[in-house]
Design a protein around this nucleic acid. Structure first.
Lengths: 220, 220
DNA sequence: AGGGGGATTTTGATTAGTCAAAATCATTAA
DNA sequence: TTAATGATTTTGACTAATCAAAATCCCCCT
């Protein structure tokens, strides 16, 4: 069995690989994502390479192998199903479930996981709109765009929020910006580096582009 | 925070202290309960003594301090609430939840635990009838007797089963011997080292004394 | 009193994961 | 082309938890 540490490295490698869109994940990136010193990442990656979970090109970076990716997706599935479970069954807030799931994802057996999956009706996304990999390790491809890229004046639905920071999520929550909510980009200001969004029955809200980029809406 | 290993040692020390009824737990006992070699138990107990969680008398054994006992009870509370949760909410079998809980007990936060407790209606016993310590670390004292000690011919209720072995529990389950079920000791045979029990609408079943001792019924 | 035996403790080694700091390398800037 | 810069890798050391096996101790029996 992969240790908790190994599971975390694989998961992080997968996530980095996703949003960086670069082929190889640099040791520095991985190290800071894992909260360790770079040398630690290097030696861990070498160990992972020895067990065939990643392929490592010294001085350039690492990439998950097929096997490593399957394991990573499995961890991600546990993480996201647990998050949804915590919200739907135990009534926790979507801003606080990430940290909880970070622990539980390593303690849940296959059997319990499948029970949870069934209880939730085989959901396809977690409370942040992140896709839940299937038991076989497939992730559904979504066609989403970041809020600043949505057409001005067009109503779209918030589909996903790509930041797990509790305070940011609480801010969004208070502003009514949750997955599933319909929003309209009412104005944009290149110079101010901001856009204004309108939620049903609320005053328009102005967001900096960086924050708005974390909100993904359905492409039309 | 106490590591998973430390939590397990404390829990085991508590359990040994309970059913051995001796003041001190011997290193040999602790080691075999933990599945480690005796020397390992010795050095771990010395470390626990250094952090004030146990008091250790070399060559005699160890005993939990007040602080260690509180921690142990906390772990036990998590373990038992999780077991009940798995049975009641996720529909697992009472024979299989022990092992699951063994992992989850170390991954559950205070917040999630209290949600589970509330969802279950602040239960006082787990699926095996083991008492669930309160958040403050109090355990309700029960007045139970082992089945072989029950009066012959008197109807009593099964209250607790003190063995977590899945196969034994499955055997009991098939025989209808579950906590809450009414049973009568219909006969006893000193020479055969056995007793016969009768469950409502079933043929009498003969159990060896050792097995029957693991079934506790309400004292009348 | 003297041994034996069984449990306990010690000692020395090992593994996983980590850090600090020195060494190495690749690329950019001059 | 060379030197500087910043990232990466290496080295040596540390901690927690463990085992194997040698050393020690306590109690009981003769």
């Amino acid at each position: 069995m992969a240790s908790i540490t190994v599971e975390n490295y694989l998961k992080q490698l997968y996530l980095e690989q996703q949003n960086a869109a670069e082929e190889l994940v640099a040791m520095g990136k991985l190290a800071s994502a894992m909260g360790v010193v770079p040398g630690t990442a290097t030696s861990m990656v070498k160990a992972l390479a020895d067990s065939g979970l990643v392929s490592y090109e010294p001085r350039f970076g690492a990439r998950l192998t097929k096997g490593g990716e399957q394991l990573a997706l499995h961890v991600l599935r546990r993480h996201r199903l647990v998050e949804l479970f915590l919200v739907k069954v135990l009534g926790l807030d979507w801003s606080e479930v990430h940290d909880e799931a970070e622990e539980l994802e390593h303690a849940i057996s296959e059997k319990v996981l499948e029970r949870i999956d069934k209880l939730l009706g085989h959901p396809s996304v977690d409370p942040h709109g992140d896709p839940i990999p299937t038991a076989k390790g497939k992730v559904s491809e979504e066609r989403l765009v970041a809020l600043p890229e949505a057409e001005t004046g067009a109503r779209t639905k918030i589909a996903r929020v790509v930041d797990q920071d509790a305070r940011f999520l609480q801010f969004l929550d208070r502003a009514g910006l949750r997955p599933g909510v319909m929003v309209t980009v009412s104005a944009r200001d290149e110079n101010a580096d901001s856009i204004s969004v309108k939620v049903e029955g609320r005053a328009a809200l102005t967001l900096g582009t960086a924050a708005a980029m974390k909100i993904l809406v359905e492409a039309i």
